[in-house]
Simulated assay, not measured.
Amino acid sequence: MKTQALLASITLALAGSAFAAGDKHDHAHEHKPMHGGVVVEVKDIDYELVAKPTMIQLHLRDHGKPADVSKASAKLTLLTGTEKQEVELKPAGDKLEASGAFKVGPGTKVVALVTIAGKSAGSVRFTVK
Rank of each mutant, 00 (worst) to 15 (best):
G122W: 05
G22L: 08
S17I: 12
H59F: 15
V111L: 14
T3A: 02
P33A: 05
K2T: 11
L49A: 09
M34G: 10
H35G: 02
K90M: 10
G100R: 08
P33L: 08
H63Q: 11
S73F: 03
E41F: 00
L89Y: 10
K84H: 03
S120G: 13
S73G: 07
K65E: 15
A18P: 10
A15D: 04
M34R: 12
M1L: 08
A92L: 14
L60G: 02
T82I: 10
D26S: 02
S70L: 03
K52R: 07
K75I: 04
K65V: 11
L12Y: 07
E97A: 13
T11H: 12
S73A: 05
P106I: 15
A15G: 05
V87G: 12
V128F: 14
A92F: 15
A51C: 01
S120H: 13
L6T: 14
Q57G: 00
L6A: 01
T108S: 13
A67P: 11
M55I: 10
Y47T: 00
G100S: 04
V38W: 02
D94H: 01
L49D: 05
D68K: 13
K129G: 11
L6H: 09
P33R: 11
K65H: 14
K95E: 11
E48W: 08
G122Y: 09
F126K: 07
L96P: 03
K95D: 07
M55Y: 04
S120C: 03
F126C: 02
G93S: 08
